[in-house]
Structures are given as C-alpha cells and as structure tokens.
Computed example of a mutant assay.
Amino acid sequence: MSYHIVNIDSPRCSISCKQGQLTCVSEDGRRQQAPLEDVAAIVITSFSAQLHSHLLMEAAKHGVALVICERFQPVSLLLPANRSTDTLLTKAALTLEKKKVATLWRKTIDAKCANQASLAEHLNPNHAKLETLRKRANSKAPGKESTCARYYWGIYADALNLTDFKRSRDAGGANDLLNFGYAILLSLILQKLFACGLDPTLGISHEVRERSTPLAYDLMEPFRPCVDWRVARWITEEAAPDDYRVDGRFRRYVTDFTLERIGYLGIEMDFRNCLESVVRSFRQAVLSGQTRHYKPWTPSNSKWAG
C-alpha cells in the first residue's frame, strides 16, 4: 500500500481529483495538492466538505480508502471493491500465535505504566508513593496495570488537589473531563486503524462486545497519559476552582493536544503522526509475525509537551 495518510480538516472545503492530483480547496481559496498514487488513505474530519464523484472513482482505482468522520469520530469507510478487506493482514491477525498476542499486550501495558510513572513524576516529583510507582512500572509482575493505576491516580489527584477523587467512568467531577479527552483519543486511533487497513474488532486484550472496537481500546492505552496531562493543565491553569464542566471552551482546549509535538524513536513529530507511526509498527508486527516491530510510544526520549 502507498505510504501517506492525508488528513483533511479544513472547516469547509472542496475535495476533488484532477490529473492524478488529490486537490483540496478551502473556503478562503487556498489550494493544496498531493499525487493520489502516493496516498494510502484520506481521513476527512472537515465539518462541511464537498466530494466530487471523480475523486471517488479515482480513489477506488488507486486503492485509496476514504474515512469520513463526524465530530472526529469515523462514521463511514469507503473502500475500493478489491480492497474491501486486507486479506493477508486479516488472516495474519486471526492466526497470530497466542504467545505473540500476549507479547504485544505486554509491550502495550509496559509502555502505559512507564508513561504513567513519567507523568506522575512530572506532576509531583516529591510524592511519597512515586518510587513505588516507578518500581511497579518497571516490574514484570502480572496484573501490574491495576497496581500502577492505583498509585498513579493517587499521585495525580494529590498533585491537582482533587478531593476524594476516584478514577471511574461514571464518577463525575474531573472524570468527565478525562472521559471527553479519551473519546477524542479513541476517535484518532480509529481513524489510523481504518486508514492502515487494520480491523479494530480484532483486539489483543479488550473483550469483544457488540459494536465495540477492542483493538482501538488496546492501542490507545499508552497514550492516555497525554490526555491526563492536558486535563491537568486545564484544571491548574484555565478552569475555575472545582469547575469540571465539559463546555465549548474546554472541548477546544483538550482537542488541541492532538497538535502538540512529542518525541518518538528519537524524532520529534506532532501527536497525530506519532499515533500513525505506532499503528503502522503494530501492523508490521502482525503482518510479519515478529513482535519486535511493534514499538509503543513512551516519552523516554522527549519531555511532556507544553
């Protein structure tokens, strides 16, 4: 497949194909082009985009997928008839050895725990429980994810002066802010999975439920602290005391974490490109059957953005 994933997020634009060039013209007349033969997928998050029928036909001929989103959540996936599914990739995912699946999940959790320890140290470097969290994050103990979470959320709450905070989807308060940020992160992961030809229903740990996307839940885990960091800054720098409303101002603020630059494998890039690189590394690991190709993100070679 071609390499580039093109994201189109102009509020209003016209998208077409002329002489083999993917062309996007924004409302202010600004024109951007890219050779369609170099494009693997087009992700459209624009609030109002006009799609020319010629683009749909040319995209199909070149094997290009179109991911159409509403409020950043993928709602439609347009694939060429000969690419309705990536047969080799799907077969590889379905037949991957259980031991290798377990290794992929262990690498994911190791990265998540390391990222939590890193952010906890950044937020509260003198906390009494920080050293314990570090040791747990670096251990190979089974079930360390839940243990690290307990210490991590305690340090997080203390750093932000969150009284009686308990991390839970339905607990309200600061949890509402975190839940919204995670929803944005999930949408971005889904965009990249669809664009790279990975079936999000074929996960490596999360359970399959009706209309669920386990692989997206799996691969977003190491990136959750990026949302936690953005929410922490909102609480300490922007919000009024004890104001946990998910209003328009907060939604605009938290969504901007996707534009921040972070380090990945020694290269500084914006968050969305980092996300894509991780998804591509996972794809390569599944397709080749070699788990060493999968490289989850950790901030060990960078600093927390902002």
Rank of each mutant, 00 (worst) to 15 (best):
S146L: 13
A239Y: 00
P74Q: 00
Q50G: 07
L66G: 02
T255S: 15
F271H: 09
L56K: 00
S10F: 12
L185C: 03
L185K: 04
P241R: 01
P296N: 02
L130R: 06
T291F: 05
C69D: 01
P80F: 00
L193T: 02
D86G: 06
P299H: 00
C196R: 14
P125Y: 03
S300P: 11
A240W: 02
A141T: 09
Y152I: 09
C226E: 08
T85G: 04
A305E: 10
S139K: 07
F257I: 04
S84V: 11
N115T: 15
E276S: 11
Y217F: 15
D228M: 08
D218L: 02
D247S: 05
L190V: 06
N7S: 13
L198C: 01
E260N: 07
E268R: 09
G181D: 00
T90N: 10
L178T: 00
L22N: 02
Y217G: 09
L177M: 01
I15Y: 03
G173A: 00
N161F: 13
A111L: 05
S14Y: 08
R83S: 12
D270N: 15
R252C: 08
Y152P: 14
P80C: 01
G20C: 04
R150P: 14
K18R: 09
L287R: 06
F165Y: 10
K135Y: 12
L177D: 04
I109L: 02
V278Y: 01
E37Y: 15
T87D: 11
L130G: 01
D38H: 14
D86E: 15
Q284K: 13
P35S: 00
F257N: 00
D38M: 12
E145T: 06
A92M: 09
N179S: 09
